[in-house]
Amino acid sequence: MGVKKFIVGCFDNEDVLFPAVKSVRKAGYKIHDVYTPMPIHGLDHAMGLRETSLHTAGFIYGIIGTTTALTSITWIFTRDWPLNIGGKPHFSLPAWIPIMFELTVLFAAVGMVLTFCYLCQLAPFVKKHHFHLRATDDLFVMVLEVTSKTNEADTINFLKKAGAVEVNVQVAEDGWWLGRYDKEQKLYQGHGETVIV
């Protein structure tokens, strides 16, 4: 985390974006991220992102839920306070299946959503730098990180040639902070200016 310099290229068509991502990667630029208004299938592969293993986490949470239900009900009804209910055995598994199932789903769903929010740093009061406000409307925003080896002018030209309708350079915090969206906050003195090219 920290303040970095970025070159931002905006595309207005995903069919232009795909070849652009490919050529940008091929040319050796480092893609910080691509911001899109909707999910675009295959973009993660094009960017070389690895598959998410969120669903595996969900599976584990689910198993924990099943186990929690089974062990606690078993303990309660066979050890802690056995009751005769309608002449059924103390260990009446068929009657516990519904609750075991519900807890499986509950644990898996809640666990996964929390994990998702944690991984993506999503929470109320969280604020992030938005490279372009239309990234949630109709623009596909490709953000390249400027490293010591980057030649800014070349990169800008490269993006323009790749089909970007708008290119600019921004200095921004790449992490998150607690803040409000109705107030501009200066996180660091002397930075934060946007250079439109």
Binding site: Y35, I40, M47, L54, A109, M112, C117, C120, T136
Partner: peptide, 24 residues
Amino acid sequence: GLLSFGWTGSTKHWQRHESLSLVL
């Protein structure tokens, strides 16, 4: 701003979001 949890539309986030929606 408060309600949207700081969503940016990052590709990685979309990827996880898709996975989450599918499993949910």
